[in-house]
């Protein structure tokens, strides 16, 4: 990862950010296209006119102050908001050119293709092995050998294999916080999703564990499209290829990460990034 420390000057404040300066080329294909999305909790509208494209095999960060709607949007992408009573969506969300809210769409299928990792790691009270293969088992995979292979591959990709390979039958709860989060990542990628959604994946971890997760994200993007919600601006600047800034339910600006952080177009974006508010 190349980086160059740039210092943003403000009267009385010096903020250090390590921003990536390598501009990643635009993705050849768009993994997700979002058009005219409005979202309501009951009568209250929380997302307004959202439209954006998320490139395949890229890391896209959604940033913004608390309550700006970034997590709500993330959860729209795998229809997790369906679980909330009174939640309604209008508009179009296409994953690989198929509207996931269209008629006749199997929501179980959607959730397999679009995986999610949560802010607080939530391993099941089962063994490490059973956690990783859970998604495969409920999808109907019974072949023990295939499950073993998938388990090893996922744990390898989540950089947890070396630490876990001798304790696969032990309870997942015996792992440390950082390990549990990597386990949840392994569990999510075991079902071979195309897209991985991450909701503040390292905010509940100590700094060293957080760095490991970031390295992991960077290595995962070769196989998966990643959308990450984070309130940690440095993390967004380090890890993502493109960044989208939200404010009060609207998409304010969306562009290549180096440019967003050093030379944002909108004043609102600049204010947020330099810490004037939020």
């Amino acid at each position: 990862m190349e980086d160059e420390t740039s210092v943003v000057d403000q009267p009385g404040i010096r903020i250090q950010t390590a921003v990536r300066t390598d501009v990643v080329p635009e993705a050849e294909r768009q993994a997700i296209t979002i058009r005219d999305v409005q979202f309501y909790y009951g009568e209250k509208q929380v997302l307004f006119d959202i439209g954006m494209d998320i490139g395949e095999n890229r890391v896209t960060a959604l940033i913004g102050p608390s309550g700006c709607g970034k997590t709500t949007l993330l959860r729209c992408l795998n229809r997790m908001n369906d679980l909330i009573e009174g939640a309604r969506i209008r508009g179009e969300v296409k994953v690989k050119d198929r509207d996931i809210y269209g008629a006749g769409v199997d929501v179980i299928e959607v959730r397999r293709r679009v995986g999610m990792v949560f802010q607080k790691s939530n391993p099941f009270p089962k063994s490490i092995y059973d956690n990783v293969v859970y998604g495969l088992r409920i999808a109907g995979q019974r072949d023990r050998r295939k499950l073993d292979e998938a388990c090893e591959a996922s744990l390898q990709r989540a950089a947890l294999w070396d630490e876990a390979k001798d304790r696969l039958q032990e309870s997942a709860l015996s792992l440390s916080g950082g390990q549990q989060q990597r386990l949840c990542i392994a569990r999510a990628i075991a079902v071979e999703p195309e897209i991985l959604l991450m909701d503040e994946p390292s905010s509940a971890l100590d700094p060293l564990a957080a760095v490991k997760i970031e390295e992991l994200i960077y290595s995962l993007k070769e196989r998966y499209t990643i959308v990450i919600v984070t309130h940690n601006l440095q993390q967004a600047a380090r890890v993502s290829d493109k960044t989208a800034f939200f404010w009060l339910g609207r998409l304010v600006e969306y562009g290549a990460t180096p440019q967003m952080f050093t030379n944002p177009r909108e004043k609102l974006t600049e204010d947020y990034i330099t810490g004037r508010f939020g």
Binding site: N78, M80, I108, R112, M116, N122, G135, I138, V191
Partner: peptide, 17 residues
């Protein structure tokens, strides 16, 4: 905890799973 159910749903579980 709700997070357990969410994790299951996010992996493609049906209601009964």
């Amino acid at each position: 905890p709700v997070s357990q159910r969410e994790a299951a749903y996010a992996l493609g579980a049906t209601r009964w799973e």
